[in-house]
Design a binder for these strands. Structure first.
Length: 403
DNA sequence: ACGAAGGCAACTAAGAATAC
DNA sequence: GTATTCTTAGTTGCCTTCGT
């Protein structure tokens, strides 16, 4: 028996629909994809029409929908090549989806997609589009071509299955990404990749991080689409970052698999200068909590190889390695943020934690001290924190800790 | 008017290290 | 030897703000 309900206003229709989505839908033992709104009186003539005018369907937002794979684009970032599916645009949970990452050649292969395949698209966590599976592939459909040579240096790409990459350590793309990483890691705004960094790199005006600090306003205003206002803004932002903690300095050099957190562990363990890390043996570094052979080697070899560039950067005198912060009200505490904050951005909150000696985390882990959120929405982070009994506090309570 | 960039949302894969 | 935990790095789309 189909459920019915009599309502009197448009508002009630909207509320009822929401109620069905939120609770009623799950309790039914059959699938529904929407509701039909019709007048109480039955107009027999109207009902004979293919599309009766006295009734209208009010569908729920789809949670999964089918589309067609148009093509695969290879997104290049540094050494890595990642397949991205371009699909026929479809409406899904309130937005138009036309791209979805295929992660790596292995996952692409497991899905078995070809150009023209009908695919099922969802959104993970209601946000990120994802190709779930292939519904059907037309006969004789074109295979997806995996690139063989690096677009930048023509080296033969290495296909490890879970990773397709260019093995050349001096590949122009790798060197370019190092510069971009520095800008991003240090949160230097308005240094547009498209308008500024790419063109400067391609015309050989900048080749290393240190070169950024030789730039003049005139170098930027020469570029298309950049006038004095933007040029000044970019350079001011660059020069505003002067004191850089060692872990960020090293992480800013884009050593594969070595982020700020891992370097911080070394700093905490007493390897708190660039020289100390450079001269340490792999064995010594592998004694650090959270380090073993592989990470120790990555750090040691990375710093050794990039040391001349690091020295060159420090020689410009435009940046300095800052003294580590070891004291503060939040010493020894870790924080993870979720949802919107009221008085500050996510980034400011992270900085606040760091400047008070605490540590921000991007996910809820076992030893997290606090999850900070203003909402009780049951997101993955919230649920996980609840499950393992992590203290959940509001933004106001977080600010109280700093008083 | 147009385009670029920042900021935000929440999640996943892969690999390394540690815990059991 | 196996399971779990942690870190890194990346994923799309929408909205707002600002410069050209």
């Amino acid at each position: 028996m189909v459920k019915t309900k009599t309502v009197h206003t448009i508002q009630e229709v909207i509320e009822t629909r929401q109620e069905i989505i939120d609770s009623i839908r799950d309790s039914l033992n059959y699938e529904i994809d929407g509701l039909v709104i019709k007048g109480r009186e039955i107009d027999r003539e109207d009902m004979k029409r293919a599309k009766p005018e006295s009734q209208i369907a009010f569908k729920f937002p789809a949670e999964m929908i089918d589309s067609t794979l148009i093509d695969v684009e290879w997104s290049v970032s540094g050494a890595n090549y990642t397949p991205v599916a371009l699909i026929e645009p479809v409406e899904l949970l309130g937005s138009t989806v036309q791209r979805a990452s295929l992660a790596n050649p292995d996952i692409m292969g497991q899905l078995g997609v070809k150009i023209g395949s009908k695919v099922m698209v969802s959104k993970r966590g209601d946000i990120i589009p994802k190709i779930e599976y292939v519904i059907a592939t037309p006969e004789g459909a074109e295979e997806i071509v995996i690139p063989i040579k690096c677009e930048a240096c023509e080296s033969d790409l290495i296909n490890e299955g879970s990773r397709l990459y260019c093995p050349n350590e001096d590949c122009p793309n790798v060197r370019y990404r190092r510069i971009v990483k520095w800008i991003k890691k240090n949160d230097i705004k308005h240094f547009s990749e498209k308008l500024i960094l790419r063109p400067l790199y391609e015309t050989q005006r900048i080749q290393k991080i240190a070169d950024l600090y030789t730039l003049k306003i005139s170098d930027l205003t020469k570029l298309e689409g950049v006038q004095e206002k933007s040029a000044k803004k970019a350079l001011n932002n660059l020069l505003a970052v002067k004191q850089i903690p060692l872990e960020r300095f090293i992480a800013g050099f884009d050593i594969e698999g070595l982020g700020e957190r891992m370097v911080k562990k070394a700093v905490k363990a007493g390897f708190d200068t660039l020289e100390a890390i450079k001269t340490a043996s792999i064995h010594e570094l592998s004694q650090i909590d959270g380090y073993a052979e592989i990470t120790a080697q990555t750090l040691q070899q990375g710093v050794e190889k990039l040391y001349p560039e690091m020295e060159q950067l420090l020689k410009t005198q435009k940046v300095k390695i800052a003294e580590p912060i070891t004291e503060g009200k939040l010493k020894g505490l870790t924080f993870c943020f979720t949802g919107k904050l009221i008085t500050m951005s996510r980034k400011e909150a992270h900085d606040l934690v760091i400047s008070n000696g605490g540590e921000p985390k991007s996910s809820v882990t076992k030893h997290l001290s606090y999850l900070v959120t203003n909402s009780t929405e049951r997101t993955t982070k919230y649920k996980k924190a609840q499950e393992q009994g992590t203290t959940i506090i509001t933004e106001a309570q977080f600010l109280k800790l700093l008083e």
